[in-house]
Amino acid sequence: MENTSSVKRSSNRSDILEHTLHGITETLEQALFAEEISARKGLFQSLDARVKVISVLALLIGVALSHSLLVLLAIYFLALLFAWTSAIPAGLLIKRVWLALPFFTGLIALPALFITPGPAFLHLPLLGLVITQTGLTTAAFLLLRVSTSASLTLLLILTTPWNTVLSALGVLRVPDVFILILGMTYRYIYLLLHTANDMFLSRKSRMVGRMDTSENQKMLAAISATLLDKSLNLSSEVYLAMQSRGYRGAVVTLKPFRMQPQDWLWLFIFLGITTLAIILGR
């Protein structure tokens, strides 16, 4: 009994530590999982990254401009179909989008149900509130637009390695130096996450006694300060490494993409779908 309560107390005390470790591990695992999916054989994986970036962007514009719930629903199911043909379990896409949706868009959409003026759709007698038909349509549009957009974006991210997405941004006239900085940010955040993970694990391995809130705060502050110091040192060393290989302020990159006939075909298909969505959704 004593042992049990001691373990319980100890686990409560190390909550912050465990929670942080869990968060870091989950982030690292998700990155690994996305990389594994992008290496699978599937429709989206086989397309040129530029085609994917342009097509997803075009479809997002189509979603934003469409004023028909049916059209939005059709694009959403199309996204699920593309996920299925790209070896992404539809359940994964649905779960990732709809688990996060209520916390963000749901909170915005909820009041719209009641405050948008229009004919009554449903009375909630216990709460004394009325859901209006216009409110319901507005909330449905908001949720469907966001879920479709999020699904399309996830489709791109899950089927394309991050470095390739960045390189493909070049076709949208994003400056090379911006792409390089984005790439380095992702790369070094990943490295610092690993370092943070090691530091938390090292702290955990040496923790035998009680850690109260102030000690927890001290530990987090110390780890944050060390990480900041490491990242500053890293940034100056990376700059030296770039200078050593000829960097003088302007970045030149290779654009290694080659369009295949099937890329052109799919580009026209996606642009066609977008045009149709805009026309039918007017």
């Binding site: 470095n163 390739t164 390189s167 790439g183 380095m184 790369r187 990376v238 030296l240 490494a241």
Partner: peptide
């Protein structure tokens, strides 16, 4: 990790 700063 310092030397290899590019995305690929």
């Amino acid at each position: 990790d310092v030397q290899l700063f590019s995305a690929s």
